[in-house]
Design a protein around this nucleic acid. Structure first.
Length: 208
DNA sequence: CACCAGGCAAGTA
DNA sequence: TACTTGCATGGT
C-alpha cells in the first residue's frame, strides 16, 4: 500500500476541482493563491452574481468592479491584474477560444501558462490537471510537509524536484493525479498543520 | 492577540 | 543565485 491508497481509504474520493467550467477552475486557481478556499468560494459567487465569470466580462470590466467582487479572497488588487492578464491573453492570442488554448500539448501549454503574469508552477499545473485534464502532478506546501515529515524528501522547498518524485514513481494518470493532489490537501488540512505534527496522520512510513 | 490559508512577483545583495 | 518583502481578507 502506497500513500495514495492509505489516503484514499482514510478520506475517500475528494471529487476535485469543485467548479462548473474550465474558466471557473482557472479563476479559482488564481484566487486561491495563499488563500483559504472558503474565501475563494465567496469571491467566485460574487463574480457569478455580477456576470463577471467570462473572458470578455473579465477583460472589459473596470479593475474596481473586479476588485469589489473578489475582495473576500484577499490580495484583490494583484488578483484583479492576474485575472485580467489571463483574459487579455486568451482574447488576443487565442481569439477568446479557451478550449483551443487548453488543447495544446502539455509542455507548450505549461510554458505559455508560466509566461503569464500571476501564474507560477502550482497555478499552472492546477490549470493543466483540472481544466485541461492533462497528466501533471500538482505540488504544494502540503506536499512538501508530507514528504519531509515522512523522510521521503530533504532540503528546501523545490517545486520541480518534489514534482519529479511523484512523476517518476507514477504512471501518467489524470484521475489518479487529480485525486492524489486533493487527498494531500485534505491530509494537510486535517492533520499536518504546524501544531499537530501529524499525530494521527494515517500515512506512516510509506512509499509514493 | 497571533497565525494560517490549495503563491507569486519584484526587489535586494 | 538566494534570500526578503508586499500583497489582504476571513477563520480559528
Amino acid at each position: 500500500m502506497g500513500i495514495f491508497d492509505v489516503l484514499f481509504s482514510a478520506f475517500g474520493p475528494q471529487n476535485w476541482w469543485p467548479a462548473e467550467s474550465e474558466l471557473e477552475v482557472i479563476v479559482g486557481a488564481i484566487l486561491t493563491q495563499n488563500t483559504n478556499w472558503s474565501n475563494v468560494e465567496k469571491a467566485i459567487a460574487a463574480l457569478k452574481n455580477s456576470g463577471l465569470l467570462s473572458l470578455p466580462a473579465l477583460f472589459e470590466a473596470d479593475n474596481k468592479t473586479i476588485c469589489t467582487a473578489i475582495r473576500p479572497a484577499g490580495y484583490y488588487n494583484q488578483k484583479t491584474k492576474k485575472l485580467k492578464a489571463f483574459a487579455d491573453h486568451i482574447i488576443h492570442n487565442w481569439s477568446g477560444d479557451l478550449d483551443a488554448f487548453l488543447s495544446r500539448p502539455l509542455p507548450e501549454l505549461r510554458r505559455e501558462l508560466l509566461s503569464l503574469y500571476g501564474i507560477g508552477p502550482e497555478t499552472a499545473d492546477s490549470i493543466i490537471l483540472y481544466a485541461a485534464e492533462k497528466p501533471i502532478f500538482v505540488v504544494d506546501r502540503y506536499t512538501y510537509r508530507l514528504m519531509t515529515r515522512h523522510g521521503l524528501y530533504s532540503g528546501h522547498y523545490d517545486y520541480e524536484r518534489l514534482q519529479s518524485l511523484f512523476m517518476n514513481a507514477l504512471k501518467p494518470d489524470v484521475p489518479l493525479f487529480q485525486e492524489y493532489h486533493a487527498l494531500v490537501v485534505k491530509l494537510g488540512k486535517s492533520f499536518c498543520r504546524k501544531e499537530a505534527i501529524c499525530q494521527d496522520c494515517p500515512v506512516g512510513q510509506r512509499d509514493i
